[in-house]
Amino acid sequence: MKNFTYSRAENAESAIILISSNADAKFLGGGTNLVDLMRENIEQPDALVDVTNLSKDIEETADGGISIGAAAKNTAVANDKKVREKFPVLAQAILFGASGQIRNMATVGGNLLQRTRCYYFYDDAARCNKREVGSGCDAIGGFNRIHAILGTSDACIATHPSDMCVALAALDAKVLVEGKHGKREIAFNDFHKLPDNTPQIETELQTGELITAVEIPKNDFAKHSIYRKVRDRASYAFALVSVAAALEVENDAIKNVRIALGGVAHKPWRAFEAENFLTGNQATGTNFRQAAEAELKAAKGYEHNSFKIELAKRTIVSVLKELAENGGIKR
Protein backbone atom coordinates (compact mmCIF):
# COMPACT_ATOMS: atom_id res chain seq x y z
CA MET A 1 0.00 0.00 0.00
CA LYS A 2 1.36 3.37 -1.00
CA ASN A 3 1.65 6.12 1.59
CA PHE A 4 -0.95 8.85 1.30
CA THR A 5 -2.06 11.95 3.12
CA TYR A 6 -5.44 12.24 4.74
CA SER A 7 -7.56 15.28 5.34
CA ARG A 8 -11.13 15.83 6.31
CA ALA A 9 -13.36 18.34 4.61
CA GLU A 10 -16.00 20.13 6.64
CA ASN A 11 -18.09 21.18 3.65
CA ALA A 12 -18.32 20.74 -0.10
CA GLU A 13 -16.42 23.92 -0.82
CA SER A 14 -13.40 22.93 1.25
CA ALA A 15 -13.49 19.40 -0.16
CA ILE A 16 -13.29 20.75 -3.69
CA ILE A 17 -10.42 23.07 -2.77
CA LEU A 18 -8.55 20.26 -1.00
CA ILE A 19 -8.85 17.93 -3.93
CA SER A 20 -7.97 20.44 -6.61
CA SER A 21 -4.50 20.88 -5.13
CA ASN A 22 -3.55 17.29 -5.93
CA ALA A 23 -4.21 15.49 -9.19
CA ASP A 24 -3.84 12.09 -7.55
CA ALA A 25 -6.20 12.75 -4.67
CA LYS A 26 -9.48 10.96 -4.12
CA PHE A 27 -12.56 11.62 -2.08
CA LEU A 28 -13.10 9.11 0.71
CA GLY A 29 -16.58 8.08 1.79
CA GLY A 30 -17.10 4.99 3.92
CA GLY A 31 -13.99 3.46 2.38
CA THR A 32 -15.66 0.08 1.96
CA ASN A 33 -14.43 -0.21 -1.62
CA LEU A 34 -11.66 2.36 -2.04
CA VAL A 35 -9.64 1.15 0.94
CA ASP A 36 -9.86 -2.46 -0.28
CA LEU A 37 -8.59 -1.36 -3.67
CA MET A 38 -5.75 0.56 -2.06
CA ARG A 39 -4.76 -2.51 -0.08
CA GLU A 40 -4.57 -4.42 -3.34
CA ASN A 41 -2.58 -1.58 -4.95
CA ILE A 42 -5.27 -1.19 -7.59
CA GLU A 43 -6.00 2.36 -6.45
CA GLN A 44 -2.92 4.35 -5.46
CA PRO A 45 -4.00 7.84 -4.50
CA ASP A 46 -1.50 10.28 -3.00
CA ALA A 47 -4.11 11.90 -0.86
CA LEU A 48 -7.55 11.15 0.53
CA VAL A 49 -10.09 13.84 1.26
CA ASP A 50 -12.63 12.51 3.71
CA VAL A 51 -16.08 13.78 2.79
CA THR A 52 -18.12 11.89 5.37
CA ASN A 53 -18.75 15.14 7.25
CA LEU A 54 -20.73 16.54 4.36
CA SER A 55 -24.50 16.57 4.30
CA LYS A 56 -26.15 13.30 5.22
CA ASP A 57 -29.62 14.80 5.35
CA ILE A 58 -32.55 12.93 3.88
CA GLU A 59 -35.20 15.53 3.16
CA GLU A 60 -38.39 15.98 1.29
CA THR A 61 -37.94 18.34 -1.64
CA ALA A 62 -40.31 21.15 -2.55
CA ASP A 63 -41.87 19.06 -5.31
CA GLY A 64 -42.50 16.11 -2.98
CA GLY A 65 -39.48 14.06 -3.92
CA ILE A 66 -36.55 13.22 -1.70
CA SER A 67 -33.06 14.60 -1.52
CA ILE A 68 -30.33 12.47 0.02
CA GLY A 69 -27.05 13.99 1.11
CA ALA A 70 -24.08 12.20 -0.43
CA ALA A 71 -22.62 11.38 2.99
CA ALA A 72 -25.79 9.61 4.15
CA LYS A 73 -24.99 6.08 5.16
CA ASN A 74 -26.65 3.33 3.15
CA THR A 75 -28.28 2.04 6.33
CA ALA A 76 -29.76 5.44 7.13
CA VAL A 77 -31.33 5.65 3.68
CA ALA A 78 -32.75 2.15 3.87
CA ASN A 79 -34.26 2.84 7.29
CA ASP A 80 -35.67 6.26 6.43
CA LYS A 81 -39.43 6.29 6.78
CA LYS A 82 -39.95 8.63 3.83
CA VAL A 83 -37.83 6.43 1.60
CA ARG A 84 -39.63 3.30 2.70
CA GLU A 85 -43.04 4.81 2.02
CA LYS A 86 -42.40 6.61 -1.23
CA PHE A 87 -39.68 4.47 -2.79
CA PRO A 88 -39.65 1.02 -1.20
CA VAL A 89 -37.59 -0.31 -4.10
CA LEU A 90 -34.69 1.86 -2.94
CA ALA A 91 -34.79 0.61 0.65
CA GLN A 92 -35.05 -2.97 -0.57
CA ALA A 93 -32.19 -2.61 -3.00
CA ILE A 94 -29.91 -1.23 -0.32
CA LEU A 95 -30.82 -4.00 2.12
CA PHE A 96 -30.07 -6.62 -0.51
CA GLY A 97 -26.56 -5.22 -0.88
CA ALA A 98 -23.37 -6.07 1.00
CA SER A 99 -23.68 -6.77 4.73
CA GLY A 100 -25.03 -4.85 7.69
CA GLN A 101 -21.54 -3.78 8.67
CA ILE A 102 -20.68 -2.51 5.21
CA ARG A 103 -24.00 -0.67 4.83
CA ASN A 104 -23.34 1.06 8.14
CA MET A 105 -20.13 2.50 6.72
CA ALA A 106 -20.91 2.99 3.04
CA THR A 107 -22.17 6.35 1.85
CA VAL A 108 -24.59 7.14 -0.95
CA GLY A 109 -21.98 9.08 -2.92
CA GLY A 110 -19.47 6.28 -2.51
CA ASN A 111 -22.01 3.69 -3.57
CA LEU A 112 -22.41 5.47 -6.91
CA LEU A 113 -18.65 5.43 -7.41
CA GLN A 114 -17.86 1.88 -6.36
CA ARG A 115 -15.86 0.00 -8.90
CA THR A 116 -16.44 -3.28 -10.61
CA ARG A 117 -15.77 -6.60 -8.91
CA CYS A 118 -14.35 -8.07 -12.11
CA TYR A 119 -11.66 -10.56 -11.01
CA TYR A 120 -9.26 -9.31 -13.63
CA PHE A 121 -9.60 -5.73 -12.46
CA TYR A 122 -8.43 -6.91 -9.03
CA ASP A 123 -5.62 -9.11 -10.33
CA ASP A 124 -2.69 -6.89 -11.17
CA ALA A 125 -0.95 -9.77 -12.92
CA ALA A 126 -3.76 -9.86 -15.48
CA ARG A 127 -4.63 -7.46 -18.27
CA CYS A 128 -7.37 -4.94 -17.66
CA ASN A 129 -8.19 -1.85 -19.69
CA LYS A 130 -9.63 -0.14 -16.65
CA ARG A 131 -6.49 -0.57 -14.65
CA GLU A 132 -4.02 -0.09 -17.44
CA VAL A 133 -5.41 1.67 -20.45
CA GLY A 134 -4.86 -0.25 -23.66
CA SER A 135 -3.49 -3.39 -21.99
CA GLY A 136 -6.41 -5.58 -23.05
CA CYS A 137 -9.28 -7.37 -21.36
CA ASP A 138 -8.64 -10.82 -19.95
CA ALA A 139 -12.24 -11.29 -18.87
CA ILE A 140 -13.44 -11.64 -22.45
CA GLY A 141 -11.54 -14.88 -23.04
CA GLY A 142 -11.31 -15.81 -19.39
CA PHE A 143 -13.70 -16.78 -16.65
CA ASN A 144 -16.61 -14.40 -17.17
CA ARG A 145 -19.59 -15.83 -15.31
CA ILE A 146 -20.22 -12.61 -13.39
CA HIS A 147 -19.75 -10.31 -16.37
CA ALA A 148 -21.97 -8.12 -18.51
CA ILE A 149 -24.33 -9.12 -21.30
CA LEU A 150 -25.58 -5.69 -22.31
CA GLY A 151 -23.68 -2.67 -23.58
CA THR A 152 -20.33 -4.45 -23.55
CA SER A 153 -17.39 -3.53 -25.75
CA ASP A 154 -14.27 -5.26 -26.96
CA ALA A 155 -12.42 -3.29 -24.31
CA CYS A 156 -14.45 -4.27 -21.25
CA ILE A 157 -17.26 -6.55 -20.10
CA ALA A 158 -17.28 -5.57 -16.43
CA THR A 159 -20.47 -4.89 -14.50
CA HIS A 160 -21.38 -2.17 -12.07
CA PRO A 161 -21.85 -3.91 -8.72
CA SER A 162 -24.32 -1.62 -6.95
CA ASP A 163 -27.83 -2.61 -5.94
CA MET A 164 -28.82 0.85 -4.78
CA CYS A 165 -27.98 2.37 -8.14
CA VAL A 166 -30.34 -0.02 -9.92
CA ALA A 167 -33.21 1.34 -7.87
CA LEU A 168 -32.06 4.93 -8.41
CA ALA A 169 -31.97 4.30 -12.17
CA ALA A 170 -35.53 3.04 -12.10
CA LEU A 171 -36.58 6.07 -10.05
CA ASP A 172 -35.15 8.61 -12.52
CA ALA A 173 -32.92 10.09 -9.85
CA LYS A 174 -30.63 13.04 -10.40
CA VAL A 175 -27.07 13.31 -9.18
CA LEU A 176 -26.11 16.72 -7.82
CA VAL A 177 -22.46 17.52 -8.24
CA GLU A 178 -20.24 20.44 -7.43
CA GLY A 179 -16.82 21.37 -8.75
CA LYS A 180 -14.57 24.37 -9.03
CA HIS A 181 -16.67 25.54 -11.96
CA GLY A 182 -19.88 25.37 -10.00
CA LYS A 183 -22.84 23.07 -9.49
CA ARG A 184 -24.69 20.91 -11.94
CA GLU A 185 -27.17 18.07 -12.14
CA ILE A 186 -26.66 14.83 -13.98
CA ALA A 187 -29.57 12.58 -14.88
CA PHE A 188 -29.01 9.20 -13.27
CA ASN A 189 -29.07 7.33 -16.54
CA ASP A 190 -26.31 9.59 -17.85
CA PHE A 191 -24.19 9.38 -14.73
CA HIS A 192 -22.60 5.97 -15.33
CA LYS A 193 -21.14 5.24 -18.74
CA LEU A 194 -20.89 2.23 -20.95
CA PRO A 195 -17.33 1.03 -21.48
CA ASP A 196 -16.90 1.67 -25.22
CA ASN A 197 -13.21 2.25 -25.80
CA THR A 198 -12.65 4.06 -22.55
CA PRO A 199 -13.67 1.70 -19.74
CA GLN A 200 -11.39 3.58 -17.38
CA ILE A 201 -13.88 6.46 -17.53
CA GLU A 202 -16.80 5.18 -15.54
CA THR A 203 -18.92 8.25 -14.87
CA GLU A 204 -19.73 11.71 -16.15
CA LEU A 205 -17.92 13.28 -13.21
CA GLN A 206 -15.15 15.65 -14.19
CA THR A 207 -11.84 15.74 -12.34
CA GLY A 208 -12.33 17.26 -8.93
CA GLU A 209 -16.11 17.15 -9.02
CA LEU A 210 -17.88 16.02 -5.89
CA ILE A 211 -21.24 14.32 -5.54
CA THR A 212 -23.18 16.35 -2.98
CA ALA A 213 -26.62 14.75 -3.14
CA VAL A 214 -28.95 12.44 -4.97
CA GLU A 215 -32.47 13.63 -5.68
CA ILE A 216 -35.41 11.43 -6.45
CA PRO A 217 -38.29 13.27 -8.10
CA LYS A 218 -41.83 12.82 -6.84
CA ASN A 219 -43.80 10.12 -8.47
CA ASP A 220 -47.09 8.59 -7.51
CA PHE A 221 -46.50 4.98 -8.37
CA ALA A 222 -43.05 4.12 -7.12
CA LYS A 223 -44.56 3.13 -3.82
CA HIS A 224 -45.68 0.08 -5.79
CA SER A 225 -42.17 -1.03 -6.50
CA ILE A 226 -39.93 -3.95 -5.70
CA TYR A 227 -36.35 -5.05 -6.05
CA ARG A 228 -35.44 -8.66 -6.75
CA LYS A 229 -31.88 -9.87 -6.58
CA VAL A 230 -30.91 -13.25 -8.00
CA ARG A 231 -27.66 -14.53 -6.55
CA ASP A 232 -25.91 -17.77 -5.73
CA ARG A 233 -25.72 -17.13 -2.01
CA ALA A 234 -28.72 -15.94 -0.01
CA SER A 235 -26.88 -12.94 1.41
CA TYR A 236 -23.59 -11.10 0.98
CA ALA A 237 -23.22 -11.85 -2.72
CA PHE A 238 -23.33 -9.69 -5.79
CA ALA A 239 -26.27 -9.98 -8.16
CA LEU A 240 -26.12 -12.36 -11.06
CA VAL A 241 -29.13 -10.43 -12.21
CA SER A 242 -31.29 -7.96 -10.33
CA VAL A 243 -34.41 -6.07 -11.27
CA ALA A 244 -35.85 -2.89 -9.81
CA ALA A 245 -39.35 -2.24 -11.08
CA ALA A 246 -42.44 -0.17 -10.46
CA LEU A 247 -45.78 -0.69 -12.09
CA GLU A 248 -48.99 1.32 -12.34
CA VAL A 249 -52.00 -0.24 -14.00
CA GLU A 250 -55.10 1.79 -14.79
CA ASN A 251 -58.22 0.50 -16.49
CA ASP A 252 -56.47 -2.74 -17.34
CA ALA A 253 -53.65 -0.96 -19.14
CA ILE A 254 -50.17 -0.18 -17.96
CA LYS A 255 -50.02 3.52 -17.30
CA ASN A 256 -46.51 3.68 -15.93
CA VAL A 257 -43.74 1.18 -15.69
CA ARG A 258 -40.12 1.46 -14.69
CA ILE A 259 -37.61 -1.33 -15.02
CA ALA A 260 -33.88 -1.28 -14.33
CA LEU A 261 -31.47 -4.20 -14.33
CA GLY A 262 -28.38 -4.83 -12.24
CA GLY A 263 -25.53 -7.29 -12.76
CA VAL A 264 -25.84 -7.17 -16.53
CA ALA A 265 -23.98 -4.08 -17.68
CA HIS A 266 -21.23 -1.58 -16.99
CA LYS A 267 -23.94 0.65 -15.55
CA PRO A 268 -27.34 0.18 -13.94
CA TRP A 269 -29.34 -0.75 -17.01
CA ARG A 270 -32.56 1.11 -17.50
CA ALA A 271 -34.83 -1.10 -19.60
CA PHE A 272 -36.33 1.51 -21.88
CA GLU A 273 -37.18 -1.01 -24.60
CA ALA A 274 -39.24 -3.06 -22.22
CA GLU A 275 -40.87 0.01 -20.71
CA ASN A 276 -41.86 1.34 -24.13
CA PHE A 277 -43.30 -1.97 -25.14
CA LEU A 278 -45.38 -2.26 -22.01
CA THR A 279 -46.71 1.26 -21.67
CA GLY A 280 -50.33 1.27 -22.75
CA ASN A 281 -50.41 -2.50 -23.04
CA GLN A 282 -52.11 -4.99 -20.77
CA ALA A 283 -50.30 -6.33 -17.74
CA THR A 284 -50.17 -9.97 -18.83
CA GLY A 285 -47.48 -12.61 -18.53
CA THR A 286 -47.21 -12.77 -22.30
CA ASN A 287 -46.62 -9.07 -22.59
CA PHE A 288 -44.09 -9.13 -19.78
CA ARG A 289 -42.19 -11.86 -21.55
CA GLN A 290 -42.30 -9.98 -24.85
CA ALA A 291 -41.06 -6.86 -23.14
CA ALA A 292 -38.20 -8.82 -21.61
CA GLU A 293 -37.37 -10.35 -24.99
CA ALA A 294 -37.30 -6.88 -26.54
CA GLU A 295 -34.98 -5.58 -23.85
CA LEU A 296 -32.57 -8.49 -24.04
CA LYS A 297 -32.57 -8.66 -27.83
CA ALA A 298 -29.27 -6.85 -27.97
CA ALA A 299 -27.73 -8.97 -25.21
CA LYS A 300 -24.53 -10.83 -25.90
CA GLY A 301 -23.36 -13.73 -23.80
CA TYR A 302 -19.78 -14.83 -23.24
CA GLU A 303 -18.44 -18.27 -22.45
CA HIS A 304 -19.69 -18.52 -18.88
CA ASN A 305 -22.45 -15.93 -18.58
CA SER A 306 -24.90 -16.63 -21.40
CA PHE A 307 -27.34 -17.94 -18.81
CA LYS A 308 -27.78 -14.38 -17.59
CA ILE A 309 -29.77 -13.54 -20.72
CA GLU A 310 -32.53 -16.01 -19.92
CA LEU A 311 -32.21 -15.33 -16.21
CA ALA A 312 -32.68 -11.60 -16.78
CA LYS A 313 -35.77 -12.20 -18.88
CA ARG A 314 -37.28 -14.48 -16.27
CA THR A 315 -36.47 -12.09 -13.47
CA ILE A 316 -38.14 -9.21 -15.29
CA VAL A 317 -41.25 -11.33 -15.87
CA SER A 318 -41.28 -12.62 -12.31
CA VAL A 319 -41.03 -9.15 -10.80
CA LEU A 320 -43.67 -7.63 -13.07
CA LYS A 321 -46.00 -10.54 -12.37
CA GLU A 322 -45.60 -10.03 -8.68
CA LEU A 323 -46.33 -6.33 -9.05
CA ALA A 324 -49.33 -7.09 -11.26
CA GLU A 325 -50.66 -9.80 -8.95
CA ASN A 326 -50.67 -7.28 -6.19
CA GLY A 327 -52.63 -4.97 -8.48
CA GLY A 328 -49.53 -2.90 -8.89
CA ILE A 329 -50.41 -1.53 -5.51
CA LYS A 330 -48.03 -2.95 -3.01
CA ARG A 331 -45.56 -5.68 -2.56
Binding site: R117, Y119, D123, D138, G141, G142, F143, D232, R233, A234
Partner: peptide, 25 residues
Amino acid sequence: TELELNYGRYVAKDLANYLVPVNAD
Protein backbone atom coordinates in the same frame (compact mmCIF):
# COMPACT_ATOMS: atom_id res chain seq x y z
CA THR B 1 -12.46 -22.68 -6.57
CA GLU B 2 -12.43 -21.41 -10.11
CA LEU B 3 -9.36 -21.85 -12.28
CA GLU B 4 -8.06 -19.17 -14.63
CA LEU B 5 -7.03 -21.45 -17.43
CA ASN B 6 -5.23 -18.85 -19.51
CA TYR B 7 -2.90 -17.89 -16.69
CA GLY B 8 -2.81 -21.05 -14.65
CA ARG B 9 -4.03 -19.39 -11.49
CA TYR B 10 -7.04 -19.42 -9.25
CA VAL B 11 -9.48 -16.77 -10.37
CA ALA B 12 -10.42 -15.06 -7.15
CA LYS B 13 -8.82 -15.79 -3.84
CA ASP B 14 -11.07 -14.14 -1.31
CA LEU B 15 -14.22 -14.77 0.68
CA ALA B 16 -16.28 -12.37 -1.42
CA ASN B 17 -15.84 -14.54 -4.50
CA TYR B 18 -15.34 -17.99 -2.99
CA LEU B 19 -18.83 -18.51 -1.63
CA VAL B 20 -19.31 -20.36 1.62
CA PRO B 21 -22.76 -20.51 3.18
CA VAL B 22 -23.83 -17.56 5.32
CA ASN B 23 -26.56 -17.64 7.96
CA ALA B 24 -29.20 -16.72 5.40
CA ASP B 25 -28.42 -19.94 3.50
